[in-house]
Amino acid sequence: MMTTLSTIRGFWDPVLWMAAFIIVIVITCYIRSLGKEEYKRGTEQTMVFFSGNIPPKELISSSNIYWGFFKAMEKYYTCIRRFHTGMVNDYVYYFIVIVIVIIASLIIGGVLWM
């Protein structure tokens, strides 16, 4: 087929995928239509579930999103932020370190290889 991309062990076809996707959507819509219809509008039944609390009115800004992730990864972030100093001196310093590491490993590796 025109749209098929054959990879090492299989193939990928966006048109087939879309067909499958549409079938899944239809099934999902059917299951959703089986839901209850006799709910009461304007009561708590139609409110957003916010762990039983009243949902906040003010804007949830982007900094608030994923705070749990950042809390869990706090050690990693403090460590990685130490490298991002924003000083051009440090950028040059890392460059020199990388150059020296590559030269050293090429020379050592060259001795071991031959």
């Binding site: 990388i98 090429l106 060259g110």
Partner: peptide, 30 residues
């Protein structure tokens, strides 16, 4: 020769810096 290897290391690290790969990536964000 050894000098070729030094040249290779310099070229590789210079172009890696210009294409913005970690740990030489800080200029990209700025």
């Amino acid at each position: 020769t050894i000098l070729d290897k030094i040249a290779l290391a310099l070229l590789v690290s210079a172009f890696v810096m210009k294409c913005g790969a970690v740990p030489l990536h800080m200029w990209v964000a700025d």
